[in-house]
Amino acid sequence: MSQKVFVAGASGAIGKSLVPLLLGAGYCVYGGTRRPEHAQALEALGATPVLLDVYDAKALKDALVGIQPWAVVHQLTDLPRGLDPSLMAQAVVANARIREEGTRHLVAAALASGATRLVAQSIAWAYQPGAKPYLESQPLDLLAEGPRRTSVRGVAALERQVLGEASLHGTVLRYGHIYGPGTGSEKPTGASPLHVEAAAYAALLALQKSPGGIFNITEDNPDVSSEKAKRELGWSPAWRLAPAAASAESAASA
């Protein structure tokens, strides 16, 4: 029997690219989504949809205990499409909540289910100002002010929980600014851009090869170094979905 992987946030931009990769690698994929209208698209891709809300800790735990996944992938965010500036003040708070409270519920459910691997999405622009390019060993900007303080503290809470359970073999992927299909931005943006499909490949490789720990995942740029991911995971920012997988994803999204 193929290994089971539960993807939280499977209907999000990265999740929709990741599901075909996991299926192509032979995993049995369960895709978590809180929206019933997204369940059909996940099923069309070949995943088993799981309708739940990460803030319902009991329902989440019961679902994962029933599935008994080998691994859990955390791709949950709570952001407006295209990072609409008019909605970002509220989104910063909501996204920090999902990183802290949502991650807490997901880690507890993963532990209860017997999962032994956890891969989670973080960000690569939360570093404390210092020498560049930033390496994974450099500190986060926990003394920031205003909205950035909220975001960085949410990131820190997520990473602490993911890496704090030895039995989960946790890996944190600090993604750059995502662009590409389904992201609201078709062209590179920000100081550390990252194509959505390359982000998905990083999650697949983390499941297969990561020894645990933190990895920057960005295109080559002066601000952030991804050399560790290239060296230890064999990751490349140039990777994209194979044509067959991309066609299946497009059809499911139609």
Rank of each mutant, 00 (worst) to 15 (best):
Y127H: 07
R99Y: 11
D78F: 09
L111Y: 04
S122M: 05
D62T: 13
V65F: 12
R34Y: 05
K61M: 13
Q68I: 06
L60S: 10
A115G: 01
G32C: 09
A120S: 08
P85F: 04
A47L: 04
E37F: 01
A96Y: 06
V72Q: 02
A108Q: 14
L51I: 04
L52S: 03
V93D: 12
Q68L: 14
E37L: 05
H38V: 03
A47P: 01
Y55G: 10
V119G: 02
H74L: 15
L118Q: 05
Q75L: 12
V119P: 02
S122C: 10
G46N: 03
T48S: 02
A109M: 08
L42E: 00
A39D: 00
L42C: 03
H38L: 02
Q121K: 13
G32M: 04
L64G: 07
I67R: 06
G46D: 00
T77P: 07
P85A: 08
L79M: 13
G102Y: 08
D84K: 13
R81I: 07
A120D: 02
K58A: 15
L60C: 15
D62R: 14
T48H: 04
A108W: 07
D62M: 09
L106W: 00
Q90H: 15
A124S: 07
Y127D: 04
L87A: 11
T116I: 04
E100A: 15
D62C: 10
D78T: 08
G32H: 01
A41W: 00
A96Q: 07
A109L: 07
L42N: 00
S113G: 03
L45C: 03
A71Q: 10
A124R: 07
A96G: 10
L106V: 09
V119R: 03
S122A: 07
V73Q: 01
L111K: 12
T48Q: 03
R104P: 11
A96I: 13
A108N: 11
H38R: 08
P80Y: 08
Y127L: 04
H105Q: 13
G82L: 12
Q121S: 13
G114M: 09
T48M: 03
A39K: 00
A120N: 04
